[in-house]
Amino acid sequence: MPTDRPTAAELVEAVREFLADHVAPNVEGQLAFHTRVAVNALAIVERTMAQGGAMDAAELSRLKDLLGRDGDLAEMNEALARAIRTGEMDDQGAAVLDHLRQTALDKIALANPRYLTPRG
């Protein structure tokens, strides 16, 4: 991947800051709402670029343990989904649930980390 600075991540950050600091304060209504949504979406991309690789590696390692074999992440996830549906994983329920919860936590850490903070 030939590239100079700013890196892809730094460009996404620049666009997010532009939308948040220069566009959002100057629009209103539906456009302001969609601008905030766009800012949040770019933040997901930034977090994914920073943390996604390590999360993928950990997920793949857990899948190997659960399924007892090797494969790529997409194919292993598909195999797990199919095995849960057919009941093949029923006798490993607790281990499957642990894996799924960790995976869901990682997804939220990327998509909306504030979700797990109590509000009111």
Partner: peptide, 9 residues
């Protein structure tokens, strides 16, 4: 679409 992760959790 990404909010599905919250409901999954």
């Amino acid at each position: 679409g990404r909010r599905a992760a919250e409901t999954e959790y």
